[in-house]
Structures are given as C-alpha cells and as structure tokens.
Design a protein around this nucleic acid. Structure first.
Lengths: 199, 199
DNA sequence: ACCTGAACACCGTTCAAGT
DNA sequence: ACCTGAACACCGTTCAAGT
C-alpha cells in the first residue's frame, strides 16, 4: 500500500482539507476560500471533497467547530497558568481570547457567523465547551463575593461582550497591537470595579 | 426625454444600485450580493455598474460609507432626544447603536470589514463622523467628573468595545431580543460604576 | 466506501463597440 | 459620458461512472 504515487484513496482527505482551509482562511480570508482550489492543493479532483463536506457551508461549519475547540483549549491553558487569584485569571483569560482574535481574526468571525445557521449541534457543543472556561471564572468571582450573584450566564454577558468587542476592534484595525495590552487591562479592571460597587 | 421605455442612460444608476444592494444585504447577507444580479434587478446590462463601481469591493465600500452616515444620524437623533443627563444620553446612544446592529447586522459587519481594506478616505471620514457622537458623550462625562480624564478616544474605548460586543452577540444569536434591553442597561450602568470608582 | 470527470448554471472582470 | 454584449477564467453543485 504505497503512500507515494497518489493512491486512489487519499486516506486523510477530510483532515487535509481542513488543515489547508484553515491556512487559507488565516492568510487570505474566508472570501478567498474555494472548494476547487482546496481540492487542487490537496491533490484530488474537485468533486472529491463532497464526500466529507456536502457543500461549502459544511466545510465552514467544520472549520468553526475546530476553531472553538482550539479556542477552548487556549483559554483553558491561560486560566490554569494564571494562579489562584480571580483578577489574574480574569486578565489571563481575556488576554488569551484577544490573542486568538489577533492571530485568527477571520476564523473567529467565521465561528460567530456559523452560529446563525443550521445549528449543527456539534458546533454548538464546541462553542459551549469553549465558553465554559468563562463561566467557571464567573462562578469563582461570585463565590469570592467580587461579582453579583445570579445566573453566571447573565452576569458574564457584559464581560464577554466587552472582550468580544475588543477582539472586533483589533480585527478591524481600530486598535493596534500597541494599545491592545493596555485596553485589555483597562477593560478587566473596569469590569471588576463596576461589579464591586454593585455588591 | 421619456423616463419610461428604458432610456439608454439610466440617470440614477449609482443610487439605484446602492439602494438595491442595501436591501439585498439586509435580507440575504453580503455573500448573496452579486453585481450581475444587481444589474438585472435595476434593468441594466451586467457591465454597466462598472462605471460607478470599478469592482465588487468598491460597491461594498460605498455601502459601508452610506451605513456609517446613517448610523451617525441615528446616534445623533438618539442622543439629542435624551435630555441633558449623562447617563440617560449614554443609555440612549448605546441602545441606538444596538438597534442599528439588530436591524442591519450584515451591514454593520460589512462596515467594519471594509475598514481593513484600502482605507478609502471618504469611508474613514464617514466612520469618524459616526463615532464623533460617542466622543462628545465621553467629553461630557469627563466634564461632569463621572469619567476619567485623559484622551476621550482612550477613555471611550472600553465603552465602545462593550457596545460593539453586545452588537456582535445579538447578530450571532447568542443574545435574543428579550435579553437585549436588560443587557444594554446592565452594560452602561456597569461602565459608569467602573469609571466612578476610579475617579 | 471513496474518488473521477463531464456538465450546468452561475460569478467577477475586461474591453471593443455602440449611442 | 454612459451603457451594451461577447469573451475569459473562475466558481459551487450534481451525478453517472470508475476502483
């Protein structure tokens, strides 16, 4: 079973397509992503991807799902590496989120855009897992009396909106790398102060 | 000079294309916007739009510019109708922004996406005019001692990020119409509290 | 089970030519 | 000055046929 000489069955076609697609999205944007070009780059006929992704949107959904998985993993690493203190963990998580947005702006946009659509189930679960890191953080803040009580989803919404907004400002070029760290620090401190006064 | 019977010169082609394009973007999204279909709908050959918009991106830029003009106007109306009190004006402005995002989610996305690009000048000016409403608001808050001093652009960044983030959450369906008013009220109150404690 | 290759209906873009 | 219409190179999607 030769792996060279282009065997009839690719073997990892799905994985190869996803990897190549993620690279294209990062380097050239979602608009430039073409199923036919992807097939060419991977060395397969233009009809082949159809087995794995019925249409273009299915590929985008799969990219979004993988994106949420990676985002969740990066947030997890950030929060676990930030010690025990609430504010330190909050800042580390926000910074990790914004870092993801900086490196994969088009992917993040796609991740949010894909959530409108057919609600693929797996996509929704991947998103929930990514955001569970934030929910744990909110629960810690509540347990320590730093944040309001009530549903963590609701309490965390302002925080999440702010972080997502910062990501959007960076992606759109309204905020550049220099201002970024300061803005993240500002925003997290602001959030904590605003919550504290309400207690 | 008959206006009926499809005269050779359309007369308002540029305006007609923009109006039709804005409708398509609102109803079916940017992805579905096609220059050829637009030309068909307006009753002109597929090559005609080229005089007014050299390529597809030029049309998108023009849409974005018109969007910023309308956004600025709506923000202006909201803030002027909210009386003199800072918090009331802040809430009215934020609510107006989010309302725009709810009704024209795809357009707002396009407005931010277009800012990456060629920096069309006119586009940038339209965006600045829209955001000038927010800057005035920040300056009022500073004058009244409610917000930190320093460059209004910098002080307002956290606020703007939060509002833009709420708009993103609404567009992506993570927050629905029911929660929306409460979230906007939460976020503006949170912002004021967080700023107050820093004074 | 997985992939090929022709076919179809659509694009955006270019450009000589018409009015 | 503004618009037409043919041409070119690309798409996504479908589907019989091959291995």
């Amino acid at each position: 079973m030769p792996v060279t000489d282009r065997p009839y069955h690719h073997g990892n076609l799905r994985t190869a397509l996803l990897a190549e697609a993620e690279r294209t999205v990062r380097e050239r944007g979602v608009q430039e992503l073409s199923l036919r070009e992807l097939a060419r780059q991977v060395g397969v006929s233009h009809g082949a991807p159809r087995r794995h992704f019925p249409d273009r949107q299915a590929l985008l959904d799969a990219l979004a799902e993988a994106g949420f998985a990676r985002l969740g993993a990066e947030l997890r690493i950030a929060i676990d590496g930030a010690g025990e203190e609430f504010e330190a963990r909050l800042h580390a998580t926000a910074a990790a989120y914004v870092r993801f947005a900086t490196r994969d702006a088009a992917l993040l946009e796609l991740m949010f855009a894909s959530k409108h659509g057919k609600q693929s189930g797996a996509l929704h679960e991947a998103a929930d897992r990514a955001f569970s890191v934030m929910l744990e953080l909110i629960e810690q803040g509540q347990a320590e009396g730093i944040l309001d009580h009530g549903e963590p989803e609701r309490v965390g919404l302002v925080l999440f909106a702010t972080i997502q907004g910062i990501a959007a400002l960076v992606s759109s070029g309204m905020v550049d790398a220099e201002q970024l760290d300061e803005l993240v620090a500002d925003a997290t401190a602001h959030f904590v102060r605003g919550s504290h006064a309400a207690a």
